[in-house]
Amino acid sequence: MIPVEFEYAAPDSLEEAIDALVQGGEDAKLLAGGHSLLPLMKLRLAAPTMLVDLRRVPGLRGVERADGTLRIGAMTRHADLEDEPELGLISHAAGLIADRQVRHRGTIGGSLAHGDPASDLPAVLLACEGSVGVEGSDGTREIPAAELFQDYLTTAVGEGEVMTEVRLPALTDYGFGYRKFTRRAEDWAMVGVCALVKADNGTCEDARVGLTHMSSVPLRATAVEEALRGSALDADSIARAAEAAAEGTGPPGDLNATPEYKRHLARVLTRRALEEAAGLTAA
């Protein structure tokens, strides 16, 4: 399978990349790891006329820790994050994406900009209440997670904008878990759930639950979070709270799972992810 022809540029600076993107017009696309875009181009479901490759743009890869925030360059690959387990949830979740070969290419920026509801990292960004930094010819702006994901394959990153950075509160006093259900080990999640809990003497002080693939965008399971906050952080209250995981969701049915089955998965995986986050089970 061969993509349609396209112009190609690999500029050496962010300014040039933005220029090339703007000049390329509406059918110009950024290229990061290419592991979402190239499969679509090979199937000719996408046919950009111009690719602006970010691989030479300096300063877009790596993780900095500043004032309790992780600042992750958009071109940081899943494997880079996987190999830094001290980053916590984001490292754990990145390590569960596809397989090692894919994780050597796919980037956090590409994952978040693509807006695929089956992607794992969007739910993590949402649950952590992180944000992304983008830059365009009009300057820079910050987009909070709650505004980033707009619809299936649609995000708030503008046509002429480059995502440069992902900002995540480090949440070092939270336990975390990520669970997903797949047909084969390397597959995309039918449903995925990430959970963060903060305990105070056995009581749940805060809980965050992010759902992958339960709608055209990632969602927070707010009913679960509310049920858990203030209650004991034990298997019983977790199981009770997890029953609310599918409330307010509208999962798309597909070849692998009916909407009903996905709701069931959301409840089971929410319980397991919360148990993992609370330290009741191993990852």
Binding site: M1, Y8, A10, L31, G34, H35, L38, P39, K42, D53, R55, A79, D99, R100, Q101, V102, H104, R105, E186
Partner: peptide, 25 residues
């Protein structure tokens, strides 16, 4: 389609699926 791994080679010392990498990359 990036699933089977039969095309795996090392790029700068790391395994990648070369059916999903452009030569220019």
């Amino acid at each position: 389609t990036t699933n089977c791994g039969a095309c795996t080679c090392h790029l700068d010392g790391e395994a990648v699926k070369t059916c999903t990498v452009l030569a220019v990359q």
